[in-house]
Write a protein that binds this DNA or RNA. Structure first.
Length: 195
DNA sequence: TTCGAGATACACT
DNA sequence: GTGTATCTCGAAA
């Protein structure tokens, strides 16, 4: 079952936690890539200094976060890499969940077409935000894409029970007191979780 | 195996 | 012009 709008219309921390173990589906030319979400981070604007929409900063880039829950917020970082986020909470509240890592379940052949890497380890395909976007052919064309109604990119519910670990977020040293918030979630013992 | 630098383009000041 | 929610590679051990 596809996750509905009500799943996303909650506070970002809860959504980030509940997304673990769910299945991210990407459809390209009729072919499906299925990947299990194993690591997420919550970004809660306007209070979170690590969030782009800190203090309700509304710009062309952060505009999507102010919109409806369940949309994708895709954003280019370091000029090279894309990051996939899911907008949460209600309209006007800039909250989002960053998908940091996934575990490929199906469609590995397609993934390899998009990611030509020397490493043969499957872990290297998707164990980071930039990598998983490349693996699933996600870029800014999908910014604002509706995961609730869309069929190219959506998230399936899963019955799988997962053991969730909370931790500090990564690479946001500038966020000061908020960098120590335990807003990073990952599945315990999963080898696709980044370090 | 781990470490450190460089790449890159977009949004924002 | 500046800074960035990262990745990859080569070098050393």
């Amino acid at each position: 079952m596809k996750l509905g709008l009500d799943f996303y219309q909650r506070n970002g921390v809860s959504v980030a936690c509940d997304l673990l173990g769910k299945l991210l589906v990407r459809e390209i030319d009729g072919q499906q890539i299925i990947a299990k979400i194993v690591e997420t981070e919550a970004y809660i604007g306007p209070e979170d200094k690590g969030c782009h929409a800190y203090q309700n900063k509304r710009t062309k880039r952060t505009e999507v976060m102010f919109g409806r829950a369940g949309c994708a917020y895709v954003y280019l970082i370091y000029g090279i890499h894309n990051c996939l986020n899911i907008v949460t909470a209600s309209e006007g509240k800039p909250e989002a969940v960053l998908i940091r890592a996934v575990e490929p379940i199906d469609g590995l052949d397609i993934v390899r077409e998009y990611r030509e890497i020397k490493s043969r380890k499957i872990e290297d395909l998707t164990n980071g935000p930039g990598k998983l976007c490349q693996a699933l052919d996600i870029d800014r064309r999908l910014n604002g894409y509706d995961l609730v109604d869309g069929d190219k990119l959506y998230i399936l519910d899963s019955d799988e029970r997962v053991e969730v670990v909370k931790g500090k977020r990564i690479n946001i040293d500038y966020a000061e007191e908020y960098k120590d918030k335990l807003w990073r979630f990952y599945i315990k013992g999963n080898s696709f979780v980044s370090r």
